[in-house]
Amino acid sequence: MPPTVSPTTAGSLRLVGLTKRYRTGDQALSDVTLEVPPGQVLGLIGPSGAGKSTLIRCINRLVEPSAGRVFLDETEITALHAGGLRRARRRMGMIFQEYALVERLTVMENVLSGRLGYVSFWRSLFRRFPPRDIENAFRLLERVGLTEHADKRADALSGGQRQRVGIARALAQEPELLLVDEPTASLDPKTSRQIMRLIREVCAERGLAAIVNIHDVALAQQFMMRIVGLRAGRVVYDGPPEGLTPAVLTEIYGEEDWGPLKPAQTDEEADDAAGIPDDQDIARAL
């Protein structure tokens, strides 16, 4: 039986008093305490700036929390040093807003980059991944429906396809937990639903827990098992999707913000990676 299909039973996440204050003085998170049992798919909703992204990034410490503790099973992630943290990050697959694929690498390399925490630098430098990883990567590409695209460059794919690669990359880590940050922020409604469904499916197949940041309340209600509402860095709602009454939504999003839901944040700059310098740049460097 292929190893990725076996459901993991581990992967319970516990946040205790998690607090983040940025150097600018912004209080992004205040004393957040949460427990996510294995296999639970939890949706995190709240207005922009409520601290959703910060919360997700504090879990794998892409953002360093100011106070509080994070546990993955028995491991205290907040107590780890560089090497231990890298090993812990392998256990948490992350899926990003705007996909965050390495645009100029092939789809296959992007999926294999999920194995970076497991292979030595030299193996990864020469793209000599273990046969098992490569088989597995092909299997994951099949699972997300992109087998034919393995050798294409990531920037040749459509938005929905790129996010599927992002999912395959996260799954290549053989994680116990998925951290998902606004996976549908730049996708059209139909593709958004396909992606959300795919995330739900792979979580069910592998028994993965997931925390999903999501700005679209309707999507959250349809696809999440449990909803946590954040407002100004505090948990203001924690319960089933059915509990999201207009009163609760007002509590989360605030009276004046309420009405149509937040529009998707499109970020055009994403495609504008470092290009070839033009004449002006060169004139300055002469």
Partner: peptide
Amino acid sequence: EAVRATGAG
């Protein structure tokens, strides 16, 4: 950030 999140050195 995405590459860092995979546990890469």
